[in-house]
Amino acid sequence: MVRTRYFFSETFTSLKRNFFMGFTAITTVAITLFIVGFFAIIVYDIQGIMSSVKSQVELRVYLKDEISEELKEYIEQEIISWEETESVEYVSKDLALERFKKQMEGSDILKEIEGNPLPASFDITLNNPEKIDQVELRFYDKDGNFIEGVDDVIYERKVVKPLFSITAIIGTIAFLIIIALLLAAIVLIFNTIRLSIYARRKEIEVMKLVGATNWFVRIPFLFEGFFEGFAGSIISIILLYFIGNFLLIKGERAIVDIMRIKELAIVGSGNVMLYVYVGVLVLGGLIGILSSVIALRRYVKV
């Protein structure tokens, strides 16, 4: 295609001529998209943490050793019948001891254990962690004592509650920052293209005089905007790959330590990073083209 050759050489020439402005735009897009991608991973990660926390939200109902078989069965049937119950597992005294031993393997504490001091329990996983208070209450009678056969009911109340509100806040803040940064990137590319149009206003005038169509005039500028957005996103992907990954893994370790969460959806696992890269690439191209379109609408009256 003749025109393709022409458009590419025009775009390239223009980029060379406005090198510093173009460089600024590309850098801005790179930094913006890096932060956007970074937050995207964090938000995604938080969801991962949320769901892994959610799946860990369970009530443990310790049973008295002297509980009768019938009562135990009755309580189990009750629990199963609740709509909030995802699943329930009966952990017998023997099983509890076995698990405890496994957990404490190699520790001196095992030698000091005589017999089996651990109680049997029902471990209930809920389908909606927010209903946890409601479910807990069912193990108390009117006077505030545990119902018959139940020794204690525990769950990690302290971790769960604030975690939900923190994740919501971080998510919102991240979203607002992303929007602000995207706007900044658009304004910058818009400005670059505007200057580029201004620098070439004579050329545009001449092109129109010799019968150029509007698209013929516009396309090199669209290419230029697209290139700037695209180049910026490539740089941001490289940054994300090296710096982002490193920071996120460090941060995640910290979260794991603080929150004592057993398992976590690890950053960079699966296709998450790939999705973010593709998203950043598409976003970069779109920002570039969108800014050019706005600039062209305003400055190339045809």
């Binding site: 001529r17 004579k202 050329e203 005089l209 010799v210 150029a212 509007n214």
Partner: peptide, 19 residues
């Protein structure tokens, strides 16, 4: 544009592209 392709234009200030 079609019309202009059929009319050549010459100006006092040439309107050449310097680069």
């Amino acid at each position: 544009p079609q019309l202009r392709r059929n009319i050549g234009c010459v100006f006092q200030d040439y309107k050449l592209l310097p680069n």
